[in-house]
Simulated assay, not measured.
Amino acid sequence: MTPSNELRLLPWSGPDDKPCYLSADSTNGYLSRLADNTEEIQLGLGAELLAHALDVLADVDSDPEELRLLATDLTGALRDAVRVATSRGHRLPRSTHPAREGLPVHIR
């Protein structure tokens, strides 16, 4: 199983856009490495799209269709980034730091 004994949320969707999960004993397996590489590519493409978005938004002559396409692409990139962050957050070791004691569960 994964280090925290949980399933790993993978950076792609299955049928009907449902999440895909991986249960593995090692983080060096083929699917784990493929997921790591896919996350890296998704985040890199998101950064490139953000730079492009800044250019498009700075151009006062951008037409509505271009802005709509940009919004669609940014939505997909944000969805990917949230999935990557969620997956990586679940794989972080749980902290029992004293400063966190007494905090509501949703803040921990």
Rank of each mutant, 00 (worst) to 15 (best):
Pro11His: 02
Ser23Trp: 15
Leu103Gly: 01
Val60Met: 02
Leu31Asp: 00
Ala51Asn: 09
Glu39Arg: 15
Ala24Met: 12
Pro19Ser: 04
Asp63Tyr: 09
Arg79Ser: 01
Pro11Thr: 02
Glu101Trp: 09
Ile41Glu: 10
Asp55Lys: 06
Glu66Arg: 07
Asp73Phe: 01
Asp25Ser: 14
His97Gln: 03
His52Ile: 07
Leu22Trp: 06
Leu7Trp: 03
Pro3Thr: 04
Leu49Phe: 10
Leu57Asn: 02
Thr86His: 05
Leu43His: 05
Arg33Gln: 10
Glu101Cys: 04
Val84His: 09
Leu67Thr: 05
Pro15Val: 15
Leu103Ile: 03
Leu103Pro: 00
Leu31Val: 10
Asp25Arg: 07
Gly76Asn: 03
Leu78Cys: 09
Asp55Asn: 11
Leu57Trp: 09
Cys20Trp: 02
Thr86Ala: 06
Glu66Leu: 10
Ser4Met: 05
Arg79Gln: 04
Asp59Val: 01
Leu78Ala: 06
Leu31Asn: 01
Arg100Gly: 15
Asn28Ala: 15
Ala71Ile: 07
Ser13Asn: 06
Asp59Leu: 07
Gly44Val: 11
Ile41Lys: 14
Thr75Gly: 12
Ser87Asn: 03
Gly46Ile: 08
Leu49His: 05
Ser95Leu: 06
Val105Pro: 00
Leu45Asp: 10
Pro15Phe: 08
Thr72Ser: 06
Ser87Glu: 01
Glu40Phe: 05
Lys18Gly: 14
Tyr30Ser: 12
Leu74Met: 11
Thr96Pro: 05
Tyr30Ile: 06
Asp80Gln: 13
Thr38Asp: 03
Arg108Ile: 14
Thr86Gly: 01
Ala77Val: 10
Val84Gln: 06
Ala77Ile: 07
Ser87Lys: 02
Asp17Ala: 08
Leu31Lys: 08
